[in-house]
Computed example of a mutant assay.
Amino acid sequence: MAAQDPDLPQPPAEAKASPGVAARTLVRRALKASLATLDAGTGHPYASLVTIATDVDGTPLFLISTLALHTKNIANDDRISLLFDGTDGRGDPLAGGRVTLIGRAAKSRRPTAPE
């Protein structure tokens, strides 16, 4: 086994983690994501930027306005995808970490969730 040179740049901790752990870490650290919905009028894909957080179990959370087009799209068809970019604007965005989650949007049932 070769010793690592401490003077050379080391890969981030996520690079050493399993793909599942690295993906969960990226999602947990994200402050924003691209939200893709299906346009209620045309059925075409519609992407927008949302600020994001995660619940204690890792479920993505985002607060959206009833005035926003993506909210109207979700009311019509709750299928969405979220794209998380882990590069934070550094380096080549296609060489950095990214995760896409696909699922259905649902209003939180937690009593602390805003109405």
Results as ranks from 00 to 15, higher is better:
19 P>Q: 08
20 G>N: 07
20 G>I: 04
22 A>L: 06
22 A>W: 08
23 A>I: 00
23 A>H: 10
23 A>L: 08
24 R>K: 07
24 R>Q: 12
25 T>M: 09
25 T>N: 13
27 V>F: 01
30 A>P: 01
32 K>D: 09
32 K>L: 07
34 S>W: 08
34 S>Y: 05
35 L>Q: 00
35 L>N: 01
36 A>M: 13
36 A>L: 13
36 A>E: 11
38 L>D: 05
38 L>G: 11
40 A>G: 00
41 G>L: 06
41 G>E: 14
41 G>T: 13
43 G>C: 09
43 G>N: 11
46 Y>P: 04
47 A>V: 11
48 S>N: 11
49 L>S: 07
50 V>W: 00
51 T>K: 11
52 I>W: 00
52 I>F: 01
53 A>V: 07
53 A>E: 14
53 A>F: 02
53 A>Y: 03
54 T>K: 05
57 D>F: 08
59 T>M: 02
59 T>F: 00
60 P>A: 01
60 P>D: 00
62 F>K: 10
62 F>H: 11
63 L>I: 10
66 T>L: 14
66 T>H: 10
68 A>W: 09
68 A>T: 11
69 L>Y: 05
69 L>E: 15
70 H>Y: 07
72 K>N: 11
73 N>F: 00
74 I>D: 14
78 D>P: 15
78 D>T: 11
78 D>Q: 12
80 I>M: 06
81 S>E: 10
81 S>H: 03
84 F>Q: 02
84 F>G: 02
85 D>W: 04
85 D>A: 07
86 G>K: 06
88 D>T: 12
92 D>E: 15
93 P>V: 03
93 P>G: 01
94 L>Q: 07
94 L>M: 15
96 G>L: 01
96 G>Y: 05
96 G>P: 03
97 G>L: 01
98 R>A: 13
98 R>D: 07
99 V>S: 03
100 T>I: 06
100 T>C: 04
100 T>P: 05
101 L>N: 04
103 G>F: 12
104 R>V: 03
105 A>C: 08
105 A>D: 06
106 A>T: 09
106 A>W: 01
107 K>W: 08
108 S>T: 13
